[in-house]
Design a protein around this nucleic acid. Structure first.
Length: 846
DNA sequence: TGGGGAAGGACCC
DNA sequence: CGCCAGGGTCCTTCCTTA
């Protein structure tokens, strides 16, 4: 495995598709070879391709400062070294997996597919820095096809030829507005990607291709991150297999073995049988039918899923603290259980799954590892009814992580994947291989986040979310595009009522209302309004009134734009396909009331909690002072308003599959979301035994009540945790930024995981702050009187404004988020001298 | 100068 | 013939004041 200098980056990157590499060992029977694929489909959309520097010696010697200085005893450096051909190897490497089952890393094909399908960039011609491949041909761009393929394009299990599926989807989709919209977005992304690649090429050129300094920097970062590694916890992620579909099969055995989908206009789930045909969640119903003519559609039954979910969660709770991530997925700590029962994590997971299957008839898959991030990925590894265990050693974690297609990292979505692939990152291991290059574009790529993934780090604590952490409640409805304003109002009215209903049920009120609309061209727009700091509302009347104001205002603006000769989003006519309302800046009425009733500490308690949870944002403050009940907004004639649903009747009653002709949207059936989440909402319509209206929040259900009483304690606990630097570091395996800075952290990271891949900003700042940077030259901030070094124009206060201005002088490409320019246009390297005086300074960019 | 608000996105399920 | 959800969270970039 000795990385040979010759094989390095240059070859691997420069487009020369790591050619031979038959990659996937034996396993999957999946077809698709890179060649065939690129043959049938147009190459990447990207005009530019990042061409690695001739010999960046990246993989060469550069012995990396062994990431795990402290921990990890026997870590063989060799193990940690980057692999010459990242994509070459695949499955189970010794170290890594040990999972409980024998079927090793599956032969499922999932991963195989993704990696194979990933070559968006691999097909580029030369290795010239800027290769343009105008993808204007008749054939759809690879990226577009993938986009159309949906989120699961990469994932679907064993199914028919992926290319064929894509083609069918494409055929069925083209010509639709949806398609056009996707095309536009794809083009936009391409622009963005090209700009980034161009910038990278430029930066590399400036350095003559030498990024050793950068690599050294990254190695330092790695060393720091490595210190935060915690391997003492055992976290399991349990994920039900095709949850909705399974629930239905359990109720109706005749469905077993048949191809059916749950949902109508859009599939929320497809049975495994249907998946073989290419059907997947989030796919349009009519498209699914094309793929599988005999596909059966089943209506959603939220109360069913809900009860199934409860059963599963109850079982999981027997093994340890759990943190439901959704209806069919939960994180659970097996640390204590294993210790107490003296069983291995694999055995514990085995038991757990067996018990779930026996008691609920539902099969679940599990992933076990020392942290949430790895477990999450592992849970998908042996998906249908299987499990995957990763040993608690740095080697195993890294081995596992390293082999993952970058897209499999939770938090890396379609967009991020494309961006990363454009610069040569296809697998997590590539992150290390190209660390030097990535450092140059760390901000736009979220380097620290990627490094964490590379090291296989993730959150090691599971905190159950409590309702005080809810950020908002919303209701939105899609309908056939229309331009009738009166109807908009009508819909808004219904939505306002629905939202009020949810608020009532879940006991929340808030102070900012956001109107969301989506034009017939699929462009969404949001307009928000925050009422007074102490004005909390939750009534339909206010929702409607405020929502209407926002809508009217928007329409007025559009008229003005048109008058001025500009064209607003969605074209000249105000034609919409969706309207929604969201309430945020919430106040937990339940907690307020409860505590109020239970004890006099209410104020204190809730305040501290809120403060803690809402990192930084002081959502709380006044809340206590505001009258618990409603303020100025009475619900006076609400009824009248609401009841006059005459014209459109109660949309909720419709139960057709697709859109009904003219009328609307029957929220319920027609669209359904993906599993879980919506559940609650629908639960709402299906009458809920569920207090709150959203997934996680609903799933958390019972905990909700507890939170009221235990909230205080929980908070204390969290605070303590925060004190430990270590915790801070892993906690959010999702938010890239924050880690090193324990400060804020207030451990609230609820169950839901997010992740972003950009947002390095903060972290980067800090790092820079720590030590002077040589290559940071360009960031040389402007000091003293703010003045543009280029045109001399002076700026009042904002450095940000200045930097943005300065940047305009350097826009070589798109007006895209430019790179870093800032200040030093001229400043050569002087920089060194001035150590970044403050984070904010360093920050001034973009 | 820092915080809050508003708008837009990316991601998840 | 037409045709692609909905609920949530977090991050970032303006922009605007106290």
């Amino acid at each position: 495995m000795a990385p040979s200098p010759s094989t390095s980056a240059a070859d691997l990157l420069a487009g020369s598709p790591p050619p031979p590499v038959p990659r996937l060992a034996s396993t999957s029977p999946v077809r698709l070879s890179r060649a065939s694929q690129s043959a049938s489909l147009p190459p990447s959309t990207s005009k530019f391709r990042y061409s690695a520097p001739p010999e960046d010696a990246s993989t060469t010697s550069v012995q990396r400062p062994k990431p795990s200085p402290p921990r990890s005893g026997p870590v063989k450096t060799s193990t940690l070294l980057p692999r010459p051909s990242p994509r070459a190897q695949e499955p189970q490497q010794a170290g890594v997996s040990s999972y409980g089952q024998s079927s090793a890393w599956k032969g499922k094909g999932k991963e195989v597919d993704s990696s194979v399908a990933a070559p968006a960039v691999a097909t580029v011609p030369q290795k010239r820095p800027f290769t343009s491949t105008k993808s204007t041909g008749p054939q759809p761009a690879e990226s577009l096809l993938r986009r159309l393929g949906g989120p699961s394009d990469q994932k679907a299990g064993l199914m028919r030829d992926k290319e064929e599926v894509r083609q069918i989807i494409y055929e069925a989709s083209k010509n639709s507005k949806y398609f056009i919209a996707q095309q536009e977005k794809d083009a936009q992304l391409t622009l963005r990607v090209d700009a980034l690649v161009a910038r990278l090429n430029r930066l590399l050129a400036e350095r003559g291709g030498n990024v050793k300094a950068e690599q050294a920097r990254v190695d330092e970062m790695i060393a720091e991150l490595e210190k935060t590694r915690v391997l003492t916890e055992t976290i399991v992620v349990v994920d039900a297999d095709a949850f909705y579909a399974s629930c239905h099969q359990r109720e109706d055995p005749s469905l077993v073995g048949t191809a059916f989908a749950v949902g109508g206009g859009v599939l929320t789930t497809a049975s495994y049988e249907a998946r073989k045909y290419g059907c997947s969640s989030a796919m349009a119903g009519f498209v699914a039918k094309k793929l599988c003519p005999h596909l059966k559609f089943i209506s959603l039954d939220f109360s069913l899923y809900s009860s199934c979910s409860k059963s599963i969660m109850a079982i999981l709770r027997q093994y340890g603290d759990i943190s439901p991530a959704s209806l069919d997925e939960a994180y659970c700590s097996l640390t204590d259980y294993c210790r107490r029962e003296k069983v291995t994590p694999a055995e514990a997971a085995e038991r757990m799954r067996a018990q779930v299957l026996a008691e609920t008839g539902l099969s679940v898959s599990a992933g076990v590892s020392p942290n949430a991030m790895l477990s999450k990925v592992a849970a998908d590894k042996n998906k249908p009814n299987g499990q995957c265990v990763i040993d608690p050693t740095p080697e195993a974690c890294m081995e596992f992580a390293g082999g993952l297609p970058i897209r499999n990292v939770p938090g890396i979505g379609r967009v991020s994947e494309r961006i990363l692939q454009a610069v040569g990152v296809h697998t997590v291991a590539d992150v290390y291989r190209l660390r030097g290059e990535l450092f140059l574009i760390r901000n736009e790529v979220g380097l620290s986040f990627l490094l964490r993934a590379y090291l296989g780090l993730g959150r090691t604590t599971i905190s159950h979310a409590d309702r005080s952490q809810r950020k908002g409640i919303s209701v939105e409805r899609t309908f056939h595009s229309e331009s009738n304003i009166a109807r908009f109002y009508k819909r808004l009215e219904n939505i306002a009522e629905a939202l009020a209903g949810d608020c009532e049920k879940s006991q929340y009120s808030g102070r900012t209302i956001t109107l969301k609309i989506k034009t017939h061209t699929y462009q969404s727009i949001s307009r928000a309004k925050t009422l007074g700091s102490a004005i909390y509302f939750s009534d339909a009347r206010t929702f409607y009134t405020e929502g209407k104001k926002l809508l009217d205002k928007e329409m007025a603006n559009r008229r003005q734009m048109i008058a001025r000769g500009q064209i607003p989003k969605g074209g000249k006519d105000f034609c919409l396909r969706l309207i929604g309302l969201r309430l945020s800046n919430l106040r937990d009425d339940k907690a307020t009331k409860d505590t109020g009733k239970l004890d006099g500490w209410a104020g204190t308690r809730s305040k501290s909690k809120a403060a803690t949870n809402s990192q930084g944002k002081s959502k709380v403050k006044k809340e206590e002072s505001a009258p618990p009940d409603e303020l100025a907004f009475e619900s006076g004639d609400l009824d009248e308003e609401h009841n006059r649903s005459d014209l459109f009747g109660d949309e909720d009653d419709h139960h057709s599959l697709g859109f009904d002709d003219e009328d609307d949207v029957k929220p319920t059936l027609d669209g359904d979301g993906d599993e879980l989440q919506q559940l609650n909402n629908f639960i709402r319509s299906s009458q809920g035994e569920h207090p709150s209206s959203d997934q996680l929040w609903a799933a958390v259900g019972d905990d909700v009540d507890l939170s009221g009483m235990e909230g205080f304690d929980e908070d204390s606990a969290d605070e303590e945790d925060d004190i430990k630097p270590i915790d801070t570091t892993h906690k959010p395996f999702w938010t890239a930024g924050e880690s090193l800075n324990s400060k804020k952290q207030t451990g609230a990271g609820p169950a839901p995981m997010k992740d972003r891949l950009s947002f390095e900003s903060k972290r980067v700042k800090e790092e820079m702050d720590e030590d002077a940077d040589f290559f940071i030259v360009e960031d040389e901030p402007v000091v003293g009187p703010l003045k543009c070094p280029v045109c001399e124009k002076s700026f009042a206060g904002s450095e940000v404004a200045l930097s943005a201005h300065v940047a305009s002088h350097f826009d070589d490409e798109e007006p895209v988020k430019k790179k870093v320019k800032v200040g030093s246009s001229s400043s050569a390297k002087s920089v060194k001298s001035v150590k970044p005086r403050s984070l904010k300074d360093m920050f001034a960019r973009r």
